[in-house]
Design a protein around this nucleic acid. Sequence first.
RNA 1: GCGGGUGUAGCUCAACGGUAGAGCCAUAGCCUUCCAAGCUAUUGACGAGGGUUCGACUCCCUUCACCCGCUCCA
Length: 536
Amino acid sequence: MQMDQLVALCKRRGFLFQSSEIYGGLQGFWDYGPLGVELKRNVREAWWRDMVTSQDELEVPPGAPSTYEMTGLDCTIIMHPQVWKCSGHYDLFHDYMVDCRESKRRYRYDQIQGRWAESDGKRVFVATNVSGDEGLEETQRKALKFFNLRAKNADRLQWGGPLVCLTTVENLAEVLGPDAKEPGTLTEPREFNLMFKTIVGALGGEEDTAFLRPETAQGIFVNFKNVLDSTRVRVPFGIAQIGKSFRNEITPRNFTFRSREFEQMEIEFFCRPETSPDWYKYWRDRRFQWYIDLGLAGDRLRLRDHDPDELSHYSCGTADIEYAFPFLADGEFGELEGVAHRGDFDLRSHMEGKLVRQGDQLVVEENEHGQPRHRGSGKDLSYYDDQTKERFVPHVIEPSAGADRATLAFLCEAYNEDEVPDEKGKLTKRVFMKFHPRLAPIKAAVFPLVKKDGMPEVAKEIYRTLKPHLTAFYDEKGAVGRRYRRQDEVGTPFCITVDGQTMQDGTVTIRDRDTLEQWRVSKEDCLSELQQRLKA
RNA sequence: GCGGGUGUAGCUCAACGGUAGAGCCAUAGCCUUCCAAGCUAUUGACGAGGGUUCGACUCCCUUCACCCGCUCCA
């Protein structure tokens, strides 16, 4: 499938539009049209129903270490700025970057190292983006080449010290970039604000700066105690939240895949530290199965465990659920959801302050005065188990899904073309969206075969009995084959047609979108027949 | 952020330094008894802003957006 065909269909049939399109659009922002909003709503509702409201806390689910409870939350997009300082986002999301005019590469300002080299009175800072002994070798090699010296003449090269960070260099004109042949090709460092800034209060100044959340998860952590105190939930339990998040993506690309405003579906699952590895496995497999059950089966979906060196400093296990989007190169996958074991990092951060790794410990990061770099809330977020009489900080498993990415994957997976015979028996191309019935924006269309002989009246009656229970669509215009095709293109799984026989025996035909098969049911049984099949 | 490409009707595509055409779709009507039929009519566009010119959709500049490659991906 070509991505542009899907993009064209999404626009043509009202799934997705570019935001602010009449003004030329805005990079990284997308709107859901009349059908898209139904599709995405169905994705969200399937997730909420399957993860939260239908969770049976009285029975141990298959694969789970024990019973557990699920509850929900809906917190604000703008939170106290300290939330983002303690979570680590504030520091991480304010990267300074330098560009190289020669190599066209971009580097994190604080990740470039180098050392001063001098030869024949010329002095230059030789930079590299590798560190340690490799960095020493690399800079040695580069310096020799730059000064046009042979290895045996290495003694004509004087080093001004060990590897130091580029941030210590005042004049970037003296810097030989990591991939450059001449010095002075690096631009001045520029700040990348990856969190959206905003101002709280009508007269707000710089000190009233707040941020639009870059993830929904932190709202769950800061409400952890509220949920505990108000609901009688007991560990192990999960808190779920669906909501918008905002990130200033450097390169928004690939349709809605990397949007700057996007929606997340996140669970923070709290459990005893010693059971956390089992819960991690449970959630990883459970979330993977969810996508399969909704139609993303096959080679295009995969579960990928992160390599140990890929893990965040606080994590003892992370897996990505990935989909081979058509806009990616062959063999490449894009992330739909990350399932992470986060230990007690988040709750501790909001208790004690921003944490950093020191050896195999997480400790509060300190500033130059020996005080916390970002002070925590000071509130006790530990949990008291009154059965075992123990107090502990729960460990957290975080399945974090992208609602827009899931929706996009379902759209990509649904796109199908086949050939069906027209009224003369000639094969013609058909485009149909093979949505899982739970996700289809329109569940059923109702047609009179022709617009006369009392058929429209019967069809309208059926339409009205369906409408309170499911999204239905009525159409009496033009040839019935055309109406079928239109519904195929928006993925309506079932079409009900009132024909001549209906007037005799009260039965109607139901047509299946994928197989084109038709069968007859009594017009009174339409609703129950559909409800039964939509559950499948 | 860099390099390359693209931007004309809802979609696909024309044309021209001098009145922007077509097909499909859509809408209305006729016809039509199961998979995009036919006939008639109708709506509808030069991404935005400057400049050159008597006159710009066309040439130039700027900008916005999309696509491809690089970079980035917290």
